[in-house]
């Protein structure tokens, strides 16, 4: 991400082309686990955590909340993916403008995607992603996780 600035109530983000390609590859990965969660995976348990330690309360909670949680996550995902389709092109850069509603989609999607990747790579330190050491990012998944952390932080700083 080269820049992020507020324009009125909207947010304009400038990317290089390769970043857009990386971002476009992500929603499919998340959709798979949201639509068919495999609860033997930490990532699925992290995306759909327990609402109560009491099994009876948990069951009742899931009856009223499960579909709403899944729907919200898919709305974020679809809203994020849609904004990537037609970026404004200028001198080799790609500009994406987010409305406040789309900004929410991005924050939610980036967080869920980080939960997925962070669970898969076993993020267990308590840095909360605020002290990323880019030199320590070794594999592709870890690099994408670090990049999404940076992007989400930039969005939060802009709002």
């Amino acid at each position: 991400m080269l820049s992020l600035r507020r324009k009125g109530g909207q947010f304009e983000i400038a990317f290089v082309k390769e970043e857009i390609e990386i971002l476009m590859d992500l929603p499919g990965q998340l959709r798979q686990i949201i639509e068919n969660p495999d609860f033997t995976r930490e990532a699925a348990r992290r995306l759909f955590p327990l609402g109560s330690e009491d099994p009876e309360i948990q069951l009742e909670y899931m009856e009223v909340s499960a579909e709403e949680i899944r729907t919200r996550k898919l709305e974020n995902l679809d809203g994020f993916a849609e904004t990537l389709l037609n970026p404004r092109k200028h001198f080799g850069l790609r500009f994406i403008t987010l409305t406040p509603e789309q900004f929410e989609y991005w924050l939610g999607f980036l967080n869920d995607m980080r939960l997925l990747l962070g669970s898969d790579i076993g993020v267990d330190s308590n840095s909360w992603g605020n002290d990323i050491d880019w030199d320590e990012l070794e594999d592709d998944t870890t690099r994408v996780y670090g990049y999404l952390s940076y992007l989400q932080q930039a969005l939060l700083d802009a709002c």
Binding site: W128, N130, L156
Partner: peptide, 12 residues
Amino acid sequence: DDPINLMTYVVY
């Protein structure tokens, strides 16, 4: 507590 969520995100 959660090791993944950003502190500023939790505040948000």
